[in-house]
């Protein structure tokens, strides 16, 4: 028996919004410690690693480890049927063909129940290599989203250059160039602070198309963490409230 309940479906709705444009289907690994998804997009250009800890749920029970292949599009459709204040319960038997989603509206005697067929998925065994990053930047997630949206108008790629002084985003195309520089702030730990931990300066270019997928996670938290090193994928990390995180990996563009 697997059962996981959140009193506010809002967080799960936001998680689905953060992955639905990147993943068509994914295996949800459910264990005693929580729910984990590690999946690549169809083009194998990016990887999404998501974790929801069992202690973050209002109720969590997982008697046997389960690997459930789910259609992200269908799951997203189902979660759109919940209002943000609904309690959501996910439930499955030990050898499931389906997963059940139940929505309870507080103060109302209404329960909605949706059953979704699981998918048999080819298991891609994916692992994330341990990496020491040259630069780790924490900045307001809304600021990052705005920069990605703004600069995407001017080119296919965004170049991120990070030094001790600050982080510079730039794009260039036929119509002109765009540059946005952020300096490190005096305060750290505030929602609007910019902090940079740097071993070595980096300058790397990334696809706007994918960065625009990643910023769909912006409503999940106030700060985003960018980890950069030469020749390894960028990590773009958002906390999922107090209960987990979502990390996106993307290889830098290389000169032909």
């Amino acid at each position: 028996m697997f059962e996981a309940r959140l009193t506010q479906s809002a967080i799960l709705k936001k998680v689905l919004d953060a992955i639905k444009d990147l993943l068509t289907e994914a295996t949800f690994e459910c264990t005693d410690s929580g729910i984990q998804v590690q999946a690549m997009d169809n083009a194998h250009v990016s990887l999404v690693s998501m974790n929801l800890r069992s202690d973050g749920f209002d109720k969590y029970r997982c008697d046997r480890n389960l690997s459930m292949g789910m259609s992200i599009a269908v799951m997203s459709k189902i979660l759109k049927c919940a209002t943000t204040n609904d309690t959501v319960t996910m439930r499955a038997v030990d050898n499931p063909d389906t997963i059940e989603f139940m929505f309870d509206t507080p103060g109302k005697d209404v329960q909605a129940q949706y059953e979704m067929k699981l998918i048999n998925m080819d298991q891609e065994h994916l692992g994330i290599p341990e990496t020491v990053y040259s630069c780790v930047v924490k900045m307001p997630s809304q600021e990052f989203a705005r920069i990605v949206r703004d600069l995407s108008q001017f080119g296919e790629n965004i170049t991120i250059a990070c030094t001790k002084e600050g982080i510079k985003f730039s794009a260039a195309g036929d119509t002109g160039t765009a540059n946005v520089k952020l300096a490190q702030t005096a305060d750290s730990g505030e929602s609007d602070s910019v902090t940079i931990e740097m071993q070595e300066s980096v300058k790397l270019s990334f696809s706007c198309r994918y960065l625009n997928f990643f910023i769909k996670a912006t409503p999940l938290c106030e700060q985003v963490q960018l980890s950069l090193s030469n020749d390894v994928p960028l990590v773009c990390e958002f906390n999922i409230g107090e209960i987990g995180h979502i990390k996106y990996y993307l290889a830098p563009k290389i000169e032909d």
Binding site: M40, A43, H44, V45, S46, L47, E124, H125, L126, G127, I128, P129, N157, S205, S207, P233, Y249, A251, P252, K253, I254, E255, D256
Partner: peptide
Amino acid sequence: GKSQKNLLQYFKIN
């Protein structure tokens, strides 16, 4: 021009 690397080999566990 710039090209995008496929990451499957980077993340795949054999």
